[in-house]
Design a binder for these strands. Structure first.
Lengths: 219, 219
DNA sequence: GTTTTTAGTTTGATTAATCAAAGTGCCGTA
DNA sequence: TACGGCACTTTGATTAATCAAACTAAAAAC
């Protein structure tokens, strides 16, 4: 059985390889997103390679093996199903569930997870709009469009929020930036580095480029 | 934050002190019930003493401090609420939930636990009939009567099963020995070391003394 | 094409939890 | 009161995960 630490490394590497969209993930990103020193990451990569979770090329980065990808995907599935449970069943706020799921995902067994999946009605997306991988490890793609790269003056539907931080999520909720809501970009100011938004039945407000990029939309 | 290991030691010591009904718990019992060597237990006790979870007297045993008792009780509460959830909500078999809860109890936060408690309707007993401590750490006493020390020829209600082993629980379920069921001891054979039982709408069967002692009853 | 910077690697040490095996204190029996 | 045996303690070693800090390779800047 892989330790919780191993599970975390593999989930992290899989997620990084999914957004960078290239299989070789550099040390720096890994160390940074797990909050460990670069030396720790290097040492760990060698151990993970020894156990065939990934292949490691010195000063290049790592690539998951299929065994590694499978475990990483399993962890994402666990995490997102747990988040869904915490919000839908227990009624927790979507800004406070990430850390809870982060712990529980290492403790829940396959059997309990599959029961939970049935209990929740086989949800496709978690409360933040992130796709939940199937048991077999298949995951839907996220939309490419966001509030920054989008054509102005068109009403679109919010699909997903790419930030797990409690502060950002609290803010997003207050403003109504949640999956399913309709929104229109009514202005874009390159100098001010911000876009102006209009949500249905809400007053206008603006969002910096960096934040706007985190809101994925469709339609 | 105490580690999962510390949580396990304290829960174990509290449970031992509750059934031996004397505060000083000897090393041997602890090492044995946690499956570690005596040396490991001794070393650990010194560390736990350093952090004020208990007091340790060399070659005598340990006594929990109130801080230690509080944590131990919290773990029992978590364990039993989780078992209740696994059976009542997810529909797992009562023989397979102990080990699942054993893992989850270290990962669930206070906040999630209290939500779960509300969701389950503040249950008083877990699926095996064990009392669930309150949030404040108060726990009901188990009945003293069991199928061995009981007067014969009297119909009594099963309250609790004192064995977490999957095999025994599967057997008990098959025979109908579950909390709430009515049972009568119709014979007792000292030589054969067994009692003969009659459950409502079931055929007679017999149980060894050791097993009969594990079935607590009332009435 | 050097030099500087940045990213990554190595090394030596630490902490928590464990074991095996050698050592010790105590209790009961003779 | 001396002896044996059992319960407990000590010691030395191991494993996983981590860090700080010294080191090195490769990429960027000049």
């Amino acid at each position: 059985m892989p330790s919780a630490t191993v599970e975390n490394y593999l989930k992290c590497i899989l997620m990084l390889s999914m957004d960078c969209d290239q299989s070789e993930v550099p040390m720096g990103l890994i160390a940074n997103s797990l909050g460990v020193t670069p030396g720790t990451a290097t040492t760990m990569m060698k151990n993970l390679q020894r156990e065939k979770w990934l292949t490691y090329k010195s000063r290049k980065g790592v690539t998951l093996t299929s065994k590694g990808r499978r475990l990483g995907m399993k962890m994402i599935r666990r995490h997102r199903l747990l988040e869904t449970f915490l919000v839908d069943t227990l009624g927790l706020d979507w800004s406070e569930i990430h850390d809870e799921a982060e712990e529980l995902e290492h403790a829940i067994s396959e059997k309990v997870l599959e029961r939970l999946d049935v209990f929740l009605g086989n949800p496709q997306y978690d409360p933040h709009g992130h796709p939940i991988p199937t048991k077999g490890g298949v995951i839907r793609k996220l939309p490419q469009k966001n509030l920054l790269n989008l054509a102005m003056g068109k009403k679109v539907k919010i699909e997903s929020i790419l930030d797990q931080g409690s502060d950002f999520l609290k803010f997003a909720q207050k403003k109504g930036l949640m999956p399913g809501k309709l929104v229109e970009v009514i202005q874009r100011d390159e100098m001010a580095d911000s876009v102006e938004l209009q949500l249905e039945k809400k007053s206008k407000f603006s969002l910096g480029f960096k934040s706007a990029e985190k809101i994925l939309v469709s339609g």
